[in-house]
Lab assay of single mutants.
Amino acid sequence: MQIFVKTLTGKTITLEVEPSDTIENVKAKIQDKEGIPPDQQRLIFAGKQLEDGRTLSDYNIQKDSTLHLVLR
């Protein structure tokens, strides 16, 4: 499925993911596309910070959802 990741600069990254993918996995995909190390990434969805060990389906993230990427 496709999800979107919006950065603070207003750029939107499109990712191909599975509901069973972990947040860690998603961060690795963002690193592949953007070169941002996962340890600098914070992903936010519906006002919640997403934890590495959980999956997209744990957070009820569905296709065409938009996550927000904050760098630390």
Rank of each mutant, 00 (worst) to 15 (best):
M1L: 08
M1H: 15
M1F: 07
M1D: 03
I3Y: 01
I3V: 08
I3K: 00
I3H: 00
I3F: 02
F4V: 10
F4N: 13
K6T: 14
K6D: 13
K6S: 12
T7D: 09
T7P: 11
T7Q: 13
L8D: 11
L8G: 06
L8A: 12
L8H: 05
T9G: 13
T9V: 12
T9M: 15
G10K: 03
K11V: 11
K11H: 12
K11M: 10
K11P: 11
K11L: 12
K11T: 07
T12L: 04
T12Q: 05
T12D: 10
T12P: 04
T12W: 04
I13G: 02
I13S: 05
I13W: 04
L15Y: 04
E16Y: 15
E16G: 04
E16K: 13
E16R: 12
V17D: 01
V17K: 00
V17L: 09
E18P: 07
E18K: 08
E18N: 12
E18V: 08
P19D: 06
S20I: 11
S20H: 12
D21S: 03
D21F: 13
D21M: 05
T22D: 07
T22Y: 11
I23S: 06
I23N: 02
I23W: 01
I23F: 02
E24K: 13
E24S: 09
N25E: 12
N25P: 02
N25Q: 15
N25W: 12
V26W: 01
V26Q: 00
K27E: 01
A28H: 13
A28G: 13
K29D: 12
K29S: 08
K29Q: 12
K29R: 09
K29T: 07
I30D: 00
I30G: 01
I30N: 01
I30H: 00
I30L: 10
I30F: 02
Q31W: 05
Q31I: 03
Q31G: 15
Q31H: 11
D32H: 07
D32V: 11
D32I: 10
D32R: 04
K33M: 13
K33V: 04
K33E: 12
K33N: 14
K33Q: 13
K33D: 06
K33P: 03
E34Y: 06
E34I: 11
G35D: 10
G35K: 09
G35Q: 12
G35F: 07
G35T: 04
I36G: 02
P37K: 12
P37Y: 14
P37H: 12
P37M: 15
P38M: 15
P38E: 11
D39Q: 13
D39G: 06
D39H: 13
D39F: 13
D39P: 15
Q40S: 08
Q40M: 12
Q40F: 05
Q40L: 02
Q41S: 09
Q41M: 06
Q41D: 01
R42Q: 08
R42P: 01
R42D: 15
L43M: 05
L43D: 00
I44R: 07
I44V: 12
I44D: 10
I44N: 11
I44E: 12
I44A: 04
F45T: 03
F45I: 03
A46H: 15
A46F: 08
K48H: 11
K48S: 08
K48T: 07
K48W: 15
K48L: 12
K48D: 10
K48M: 15
Q49T: 07
Q49S: 06
Q49G: 13
Q49R: 08
E51R: 06
E51D: 08
D52A: 07
G53W: 06
G53H: 07
R54P: 15
R54Y: 11
R54I: 07
R54V: 14
R54K: 13
T55P: 08
T55G: 03
T55H: 12
L56M: 15
L56G: 01
L56R: 00
L56Y: 01
S57W: 08
S57P: 07
S57H: 06
S57K: 07
S57V: 13
D58F: 03
D58M: 07
D58S: 10
D58H: 14
D58R: 03
Y59Q: 02
Y59N: 04
Y59T: 02
Y59M: 11
N60P: 08
N60H: 11
I61H: 00
I61M: 05
I61E: 00
Q62G: 06
K63R: 10
D64L: 05
D64I: 03
S65D: 13
S65P: 01
S65G: 06
T66G: 03
T66R: 03
T66A: 09
T66N: 07
L67Y: 01
L67V: 11
L67K: 01
H68R: 02
H68F: 07
H68W: 02
L69F: 02
L69V: 06
L69D: 01
V70A: 13
V70S: 07
L71I: 11
L71T: 10
R72W: 08
R72H: 14
R72K: 15
